[in-house]
């Protein structure tokens, strides 16, 4: 069983969101970077759970990014995973990133490819489906439960207003979200071990980007809260009905 987990970095969830260069670039100075939570808590931990049951399983991590993502990938290795591959390129857009990962996947011959459901910075929710199409593999998006029986997986995925349980033979690409696994923190042994785990750097394959961010903008600030005394809930209901017109 060979598992590939896609790891992306994202700004810490408390990072101040601001832009520079005439609002064309994220203001990264001083920002703490983390493993994208969906990749870490759900995709990676699920892969680790599979390996805990089947010790012959091998977990590879892949990330597309310049050298400064290495602390992130080391942290992921500290949680689990046997080795990592970094594609040495800026992640231009979802299509470009998917093309790089698909290339790694073709060479590695994986049975399972896990991604997070989206990154918390670009919120694209596209890389998993794109990889699947590039590799001609089935794809199950927004999964919250995954079980393996031999060569067949049973996956629960989100649908409009509920869930659907599906069965898919491997290989399969799955994008993971809450419910899939419980977040873990790396222990000392994991951190020590991660230092010596292989981290291979490969140059990118030729690929296009199909989109480009031209500008960022921040939402308008709220006007300020209107406080209603706790002993007068009738006034809140009146305001919601007559002023905000939402009920």
């Amino acid at each position: 069983m060979k598992i590939l987990v896609c790891i992306s970095k994202s700004p810490d969830t408390t990072a101040k969101i601001a832009f520079t260069d005439n609002n064309t670039k994220f203001a990264a100075a001083g920002v703490q970077w983390i493993i994208n939570p969906y990749d870490e808590w759900y995709a990676l931990v699920k892969a680790i759970e599979i390996k805990e049951k089947d010790t012959s399983a091998v977990i590879h991590l892949v990330t597309v990014g310049p050298a400064d993502v290495e602390p992130i990938i080391r942290k992921a290795l500290a949680l689990g995973g046997d080795e990592a591959i970094r594609v040495n390129a800026d992640s231009q857009d979802s299509f470009y990133v998917a093309a790089q990962i698909a290339e790694i996947a073709r060479q590695g011959g994986y049975d399972l490819i896990f991604t997070g459901k989206e990154t918390i910075d670009y919120n694209g929710s596209s890389v998993g489906g794109m990889i699947a199409e590039m590799l001609n593999m089935p794809f199950v998006g927004l999964a919250n439960h995954f079980e393996l029986n031999g060569n067949t997986s049973t996956i629960t995925r989100e649908i409009e207003g509920g869930e659907e349980k599906v069965e898919v033979d491997l290989p399969v690409v799955v994008s993971c979200q809450q419910g899939m696994a419980e977040a873990r923190i790396p222990n000392m042994r994991g951190i020590m071990a991660a230092r010596t785990k292989p981290l291979k750097v490969v140059e990118p394959a030729a690929a296009d980007s199909l989109t480009e961010i031209v500008q960022f903008e921040l939402p308008p600030a709220k006007e300020g809260v209107k406080l209603i005394p706790a002993d007068n809930p009738a006034e809140l209901i009146r305001l919601l009905h007559e002023e905000a017109k939402v009920i």
């Binding site: 919120n123 480009e212 961010i213 031209v214 960022f216 903008e217 921040l218 939402p219």
Partner: peptide, 13 residues
């Protein structure tokens, strides 16, 4: 983008 904290204008090429 940024989970609702900002917007991006994206060009489709």
């Amino acid at each position: 983008v940024f989970s609702g904290k900002a917007f991006a204008r994206v060009s489709l090429k």
